[in-house]
Design a protein around this nucleic acid. Sequence first.
DNA 1: GACCAGGCGTCTT
DNA 2: AAGACGCATGGT
Length: 283
Amino acid sequence: MADTTNSCVRLPAGGMDLDATLGCGQSFSWERQGGRYAGVAGNRAVWAHQEGDSLVLAGPGDKPLEAADIDYWKRYFALDVDYAGLQRRFAGDPALAECVACAAGIRVLRQPFWDTLVAFILSQNNHLGRIGALAERLRRHYGSPLGGGLYSYPGPRVLAGLQEAALRALGAGYRAPYLIDAGQRVAGDQVDEKVLAALGDAEARRLLCTIKGVGPKVADCVLLFGLHRTAVAPMDVWMKRAVAARFDGTLPACAKGYEGIAQQYIFHWARQNPQNVRPAKAP
DNA sequence: GACCAGGCGTCTT
DNA sequence: AAGACGCATGGT
């Protein structure tokens, strides 16, 4: 049972490395505030830090978290997933096992669909630090206050009603009209989370790609991080380099069904071992 | 399919 | 000081 003393919740982290998990580029909804992270997901905000193998959560303004919130964040941080078992399975491939060892504490977060769609539209052809700062400006200017100085992502209708110039002023650049189109398509139910959830990976990917600014990379990120499809692998440059260097263009069979999780380990390994990976071949 | 524009901060040369 | 680059994509 969770310890709720001091208005904090202390959860068994199950080997998770919070820094690696929040810093590996899968979420742009967290910012470091002193010794802990402040994060948002949908209309929830939370402060989180790690103490040993415990994940310590507190509500905004250090208000106690309700039971439903605790359940939500357990699922968000994938504390219910048997990562030790997955990693035993991944150990069947020597190269992948080496990658896992490089970042064993990474957990693929279960983020909200809309947050993920917005954040990864911002992410395209952009740098991690800049994406986080831009996402934070977007939330602060157009999101709803969640307490503790944190703001939600602006909802679909809010984005749909914004002027392109307003988003360009935030630094979104040519991604500004993409955000507005995403808002319009989701607010108008042309792209609906429930419909996406009922579709297979390929069909859901196709529907996501009807949004302006959403191509195969962003779509796969949304499928993995925002719709929790573990069998998709959003490949980026570092990943392609790592695959070229270690896996001859394919993910190992032991990753079947969990390609996205395996990719996080490979990606992390590639970034930590740039001297060991070749540049990706031109497509 | 190949090409190129499009924010802009940061890094490289 | 100038150029390249970036968790890509749309348009031609």
